Simulated scan of single mutants.
Amino acid sequence: MKIDGAWIRTAATQDVFSALESAGYEAFFVGGCVRNALMGFAVVDLDIATNAEPQAIITSCENRGLKCIPTGIDHGTITVVSDGIVHEITTYRRDVQGDGRHAIVEFSTQMQEDAARRDFTINALYADRHGKIYDPLGMGKDDLAQKRVTFIGSADERIREDYLRILRFFRFSAIYADQDQGFDPETLSVISYHLDGLDRLSKERIGTEMRKLLSAPAPAPAIAAMRSSGALVRVLEGSDDRSLALLVHLESECDAYPNWLRRLAILGSMDARDSLRLSNDETQKLTVMRDAIGDMKPPHALGYHHGASLARDILLLRWASFEQMADNADWQAAASGAEYVFPIKAHDLMPQYSGPSLGQKLRTLEKQWIDSEFRLTKEALLNGI
């Protein structure tokens, strides 16, 4: 079995392999790039595993004129930039101890040991510079073909090493698994047993995983499995996923991209800012979306007040929350409303109005103009004073 693509054949990437192999070391693509290539998904990150230790990686690559950045040298990772293309090169490793947040590792010279320390079988696939696939554990290719997300070895042991793997299981299931097959009850049982471990993780790590999970094309079955295992309420207290599947369906109907923040809004958890460490901008948008679900502003007013993108987010949330069908007229009105500019300026009302009365009059006229669906002209508005 082989993979192919411009990302493999490009001279810049082949130069990285030549730098390591000419110095006597192994080098293999690993993880996401191999997995995604086999699935026909876009390859974004180039990860390379090698038996060269970090300093040897630097020496070998710098001797070929490549830029090396010690981004994670203590953990065996060197970033190598070749003709502007970023390659994350990591020494083979084996786990020697885990504290539930990060595994403590030692460097290894064996691909087999490196594969055994990874989380899922589909992440333990390697490929040489020509695209030939290596499956040192003998399970990854079959699991990927069958669209199964399976822990390597014991799920209990893998989770104990790093409790973030609970959330990674649901994220990878949302993207790579055939969710119509359901979720393995034994795996969900192990996850339920280890839910207390989620409390040991930083909110930043949890937030990063939840962003990725909610960005998946179809996250609803995985989120439902999270709920049944008890994991969802542990990371998002008070959340309710009953409307998520309908929201995803409506997104598809309206050709709307999978906005993770929109999907977070439909879950309804009120402590998302702290639980997921949202930024101020994310928190503000989330608040606007939630507050506008049940208000009476028509689509054109939503577009005018919030812009086309956020207004359409609100419409999708309303339709999903109230189990309504998508309305193309409303969809277009939200976009067109964003194009209008209120024609009255403060100086148009002076000196007749000033101070607080000026602001109040501007707001009154603006509401009349919006209520007219922007049909009232400047002259009509001023003549009505």
Rank of each mutant, 00 (worst) to 15 (best):
M139L: 12
R160H: 14
D143T: 05
A12E: 09
D95C: 06
R312T: 06
V86E: 08
L302W: 03
L382M: 11
A37R: 00
D199N: 15
I159E: 09
L362M: 15
V190H: 02
K67W: 02
F322K: 12
D99W: 13
P298Q: 08
L276E: 02
R117S: 10
G182N: 08
I166W: 05
I152G: 03
E373Q: 09
K147V: 04
P356T: 12
D281K: 12
I370R: 03
I122T: 06
L167Q: 07
Y163T: 03
E373D: 13
R9Q: 11
P217V: 08
F41Q: 10
T121D: 13
Q368W: 10
G98L: 01
P298R: 15
S215W: 07
M289L: 13
Q55C: 07
F322Q: 10
G32T: 06
D178R: 04
D128M: 12
F28A: 03
E186Q: 11
P70N: 09
Y257L: 06
G84K: 06
I159V: 10
D128N: 14
Q110S: 14
F151D: 11
S173T: 01
Y257P: 03
S357E: 11
Y126L: 10
G337S: 10
Q181H: 10
L214G: 00
A216Y: 02
F28Y: 15
A49Y: 10
H102V: 15
A272E: 00
L362K: 08
I159W: 02
R200T: 02
E323N: 12
A216Q: 06
D162S: 12
Y134P: 03
R64Q: 06
K141V: 15
G337T: 00
K285T: 14
F172E: 06
E21P: 05
L278H: 04
A333P: 07
I314Y: 02
C33S: 15
Y353D: 06
R262K: 13
S202V: 02
Y163R: 01
A49K: 02
A11H: 11
G303C: 06
A103R: 15
L201G: 07
K212P: 02
L349E: 11
P221G: 05
G76F: 02
A218F: 07
A124T: 04
T77A: 07
W319D: 02
A245W: 01
D47N: 14
Y193S: 09
P70K: 09
G230D: 00
Q368P: 12
H87R: 13
G76T: 04
F169M: 04
G98P: 08
M139S: 08
D83N: 15
I8E: 02
A225T: 04
A37C: 14
E186S: 07
V80E: 00
I85P: 03
V233G: 10
K361A: 10
G197A: 09
A103V: 14
I122E: 01
A256D: 13
K2P: 01
L264W: 01
L125I: 08
R318Y: 04
F41G: 11
V288Q: 12
H194M: 09
F29Y: 15
A220D: 00
R227Q: 15
L137N: 06
E237G: 02
